[in-house]
């Protein structure tokens, strides 16, 4: 059997689980020595089941460590057994003190281990809480935008692509009851690095543009490309231009992407 066949056969899993005969075990150890891919497959299988059993384990009490340790080290290896033939009485007090100090040390170590674990758990919980709060915020913003879009009083204005980007488009939703304006820029290309889109409300006679928002595409408040901008009563048209980051005082007309009349 070559190494590939061996790996695919599922025998290595049984090997790690301890379900093979001694002869089979020896054969596999031979193969593992010969073929690194067999060895690394065995280690990966072992890791998976060690992790699995680790993760289903209930918490082990802290005393457990001490109890076992005491059984194995102190008794077996004679750390606290007295070997002197002379009277041990004078030393007993010191030994007891040493054991006590050691015990306190171990307890403290265990305690700090446990409180570290608790801290970790707390940090994790805080992380999740933050995540949930963030999602709730996003969700309520999306919902608000959606409600406004669906409202009876809402008007939508289609902004057509201009010379610089004939295929581009954007939509503006105006709702005079809510006094809210939303801009949907799903139809605009991604702005290049260092540039942003700026939205202008226009009065036509005479032509006066007023900035009602600089759209930061990294803005977390943007609900999937729909931005709430400042309200502007009596707008007769809307336009969107590409401006340097931070926006401009007046629109750069050569960079007019979309324009539409109300």
């Amino acid at each position: 059997m070559n190494s590939e066949e061996l790996i695919a056969s599922g025998t290595l899993e049984l090997f790690v689980f301890g379900l093979l005969t001694e002869a089979e075990n020896e054969e596999i150890q031979q193969m593992a020595k010969q073929y690194p891919e067999v060895q690394s497959e065995i280690i990966a299988i072992e890791k998976a089941v060690v992790n699995l059993s680790y993760s289903i384990s209930p918490n082990l009490s802290a005393e457990n460590y001490n109890r076992i340790r005491e059984k194995l080290i102190e008794r077996e290896n004679g750390v606290v057994t007295m070997q002197s033939r002379r009277s041990v009485a004078p030393y007993l007090g010191w030994a007891a003190a040493a054991v006590l100090m050691f015990g306190i040390g171990v307890q403290y170590y265990q305690y700090s281990k446990v409180s570290e674990e608790a801290q970790q758990a707390n940090a994790e919980r805080a992380k999740f809480e933050q995540m949930v709060a963030g999602l709730q915020r996003d969700n309520s913003q999306t919902e608000r935008a959606l409600n406004m879009l669906r409202a009876k009083e809402s008007k939508d204005v289609l902004l057509e692509g201009q010379q610089i980007a004939p295929d581009a488009y954007a939509k503006v939703y105006v709702n005079d009851t809510y006094d809210e304006i939303y801009v949907d820029i799903a139809g605009l290309p991604e702005p290049p690095e260092g540039k942003v889109y700026q939205v202008w409300a226009l009065k036509l006679n005479p032509m006066t543009p007023t900035s009602i928002g600089v759209l930061d595409t990294k803005d977390a408040n943007a609900a999937k490309g729909i931005y709430r901008v400042e309200n502007f009563e009596g707008a007769e048209a809307f336009g969107i231009t590409l401006e340097p980051a931070g926006g401009s005082v007046a629109p750069t007309l050569e960079q007019l992407y979309t324009l539409g009349k109300v």
Binding site: V50, L52, S53, Y54, S55, I56, S57, P58, L60, N64, Y65
Partner: peptide, 12 residues
């Protein structure tokens, strides 16, 4: 390295 995994196996 192993107490928790073994404990998981035993507890199961």
């Amino acid at each position: 390295m192993y107490s928790k995994s073994l404990y998981g196996i035993i507890f199961n």
